[in-house]
Amino acid sequence: MTVILAYLYIAKTKILSSLVYRFDVFSTLITNFIMVFALSFFWKVAYQGVGSVDGVDEKQMITYTIISTLLSAAFVFDVENTINQRIREGDIALDFIKPVNVFGIYLAQDIGSIASSVMLKAVPLFIVSALFIALPLPASAMGLLLFLFSCILSYMILWLLSAIVGLTSFWIVELGPLGHVKNALVGTISGSFIPVWFFPEGIRKVLELLPFVYIYQLPLGIYIGKSNFLDSIKGITIQFVWVCLLFAIFYVLQKKARNRVFVQGG
């Protein structure tokens, strides 16, 4: 119990510290709105005189875009930078001797940041988008429920990927930001911008074997009603398998990383 209280406290301090930068809140809102606004025009032009493509119409695609931007505004995964920075400054050893799990601390910090991002970024963006673009309603109440559940798994995939990338800096500090490659992949083949279902068949099949489409495309597809109940459940199951798999990799890596620190520390 006391351990959980400790994590809650860490999350709370993170929320409070992000409330300090009010100017950033405002400019991030504008930046995100620019993204949604521009992309919705992109889709409007693409859909000119076209009814629906792959069973998705213009209205659904604009909803997809708005919710996608909301998600990326809400999802915070500083874990990779935190690990990197703690290693570079040598503080990681101090983190390891704390009486709570070090990765639990990082996760609690990120969840705290998410709580403040939802309040300060996602909710205002939702309101502004609803006023100026379109009200991004889910296809059904069931869809909304499944979407929310799927988002939790999405975030776990994203967080674990970032943590794994962060952990690699125990071995390859000099390789530069591996996270940059990961972010490029998430930015392009996760469906956060253009859904993979529009891609040519062969490429789509390959991409569906990777975890990236399960970060953005799956929950968003559920939200707009692109995938039916059965497909949604199937997708969520695959998400769950990815979470387990990535957790296993993460677990092994962090064990090894721990030993490495103790060796270095003498």
Binding site: G176, P177, L178, H180, V181, A184
Partner: peptide, 8 residues
Amino acid sequence: FLICWVIG
């Protein structure tokens, strides 16, 4: 240090 940038 450039390797990841060259890929990303």
